[in-house]
Amino acid sequence: MHLKYGSAAEPVSRLIEEFHKLPGIGPKSAARLAYHILRIPESSARSLAEAIIAVKEKIVLCSVCQNLTDNDPCAICQDTDRDHSVICVVEEPLDILAVERTGQFKGLFHVLHGVISPMDGIGPDDLKISELLERMKAGGVEEVILATNPNLEGEATAMYLQRLLSPLGVRVTSLARGLPVGGDLEYADEITLGRAFEGRREV
């Protein structure tokens, strides 16, 4: 790997290599980022490095909802104004931010940290599913909202969770699978349109 950036000085090629490991960063972008770092003041570079160390040292998974937090349990799980009887299950921590931005949901979350992907060999044991079942056993949960992504893996995961949760006597719901705002009906695919009909309601 070192040979690939052989023309750059060793510390530079090492930095390029590290950037190259990041998701979505190709060799060209990695080199561009590395040379950007070379040009910025040392204080900025130090602050970036410290920020990286800080997330690794201070951020843990919330022992209740598995969200990333610097305080365990996290602020959401500790908030007594929120409805602790409703849990919204999401794939990734970033999904919580998206739901929070709507301001519509006042319950708690549970982060799976992935989805079931049978062809990649990723199954239930690779996700935070047993932790979710523990929360069910602890009691007090009346509704679980499955908010996985509306794609094959997300839906398979939701169907699997429904199998596990329904026998526990808890209400299991999923987000309405409908038409995207701003779209034209004629461009809707068959699955979205089919689900939108299933989920129609009184106006």
Partner: peptide
């Protein structure tokens, strides 16, 4: 979410 293509190119 607003992709016109996404729902047409899911696996299966």
């Amino acid at each position: 979410m607003k992709s016109r293509l996404g729902g047409h190119v899911e696996p299966l």
